[in-house]
Simulated assay, not measured.
Amino acid sequence: MGFIDEAKFYVKAGDGGKGCVSFRREKFVPKGGPNGGDGGKGGDVYLVADRNLHSLIDFRFRSHFKAESGQGGQGSDKHGRSGKDCIIRVPLGSVIRDAETGTVLVDLVNPEQSYRIAAGGKGGLGNARFATSTNRAPRKATPGRPGEELWLIIELKLLADVGLIGLPNAGKSTLLSKLSAANPKIASYPFTTLEPQLGVLHFPFTDACIIADIPGLIEGAHQGVGLGHQFLRHIERTSILLHLIDAANPGEQPLLDYRILADELAAYNEELLNRTHLIVLTKIDLIDDRQLTQVKELFATSGLKVLAISAETGTGLPELRDMLGSLLEAQRREEPHDLPG
């Protein structure tokens, strides 16, 4: 089952309960006054960001969410009970848009952040509200107001600290499995991994970070070619981007691969170029020292620094972990509450 990163759903807040027309009927009180109570307020619909959710899979099975309507008023000045709210839990990083206008209504980026997306209707007024000195027995009550309803689009952007990007078969899944406890499906896919994978990288002296294996880009991804356009949005919030380049490719191909990635990022969103970027040469266990030196010099001539690793043998992984830990610690000191995007 593929990763669902966008879904459409309907929300309906509860209607307000109707007001009541009632009069006191007490023994020895021949002309009792009005005592009809108000209707209860309809329930609201709330969206709540949940750090334990990582996909929109639940929206595949349910697309309608309704809050409870308020109860009607009763005699003896009894107000109707308010309707229960409807709580919809969504993943961190969810962007909510009005399906009709496309307007962004809320961006849920903080754990347990709550947003009222649809307000319940007010309850109607009972006839006790309409009593006056000239009209002591009003037979008027008002119906409850309808609750708000609308269709929404929810779009998920992964909230990861580090994003792994690269062309298909660049070694992202293998590196993720080595750096974290994640167990992505690893194979020589001819095209690309179909869904982002998340892993947690632990450090000895700083907080752990979330790593996202972003599905492989292909040239033209920003124009919707392949899966790139669908998933480019997931790198918008990552603060560090690791460009994984297959060092075992012949000639100048490693540098060309990097330029494809850089061009796709710039074409999709130039702001992404301002993030922290690390170029990581992968699969160096498949080449000898002379070939590795040639690849490094190829990047050096373009003024680009690289880090060489082999996820299979573990070469270079301690250095990569240390570098990521230092960068993240520095970023957290400078911008402890700021999220990219």
Rank of each mutant, 00 (worst) to 15 (best):
E252K: 13
Y46F: 11
G303M: 05
K66M: 15
S55T: 08
V21A: 08
P340W: 10
S310W: 01
H277K: 06
A182M: 06
K296Y: 11
E26Q: 15
L256C: 10
G126M: 10
K31T: 12
A300W: 03
V200A: 10
D15K: 10
K41N: 07
L286S: 07
P168T: 04
F23Y: 11
I287C: 03
A247I: 03
L317G: 06
I218K: 04
N52R: 08
V306L: 07
L242R: 02
G303N: 04
P143C: 13
I279A: 05
G80V: 13
Q113G: 10
I88Q: 00
A118E: 01
A141E: 06
N183V: 11
P340M: 14
E334W: 14
R332N: 09
S76Y: 09
L242Q: 08
G83S: 05
D288N: 10
F28I: 14
G341A: 13
W151G: 13
G32I: 11
V45S: 00
L150A: 14
K296A: 14
G39S: 07
G123P: 12
T282V: 05
I186R: 02
L53W: 01
G33N: 08
T193R: 03
G166I: 05
G220P: 08
P91N: 01
H202G: 11
S326H: 15
R275P: 14
R81H: 07
A170T: 02
L217Q: 02
P91T: 00
R332C: 12
L242D: 09
D77P: 14
R25H: 12
L108N: 00
S55D: 13
R332Y: 06
F130L: 11
L327N: 07
Y189S: 12
G16L: 03
I279F: 09
V90I: 04
H202Y: 15
V162M: 04
I57P: 11
L292F: 05
R116A: 03
G224D: 06
R233W: 02
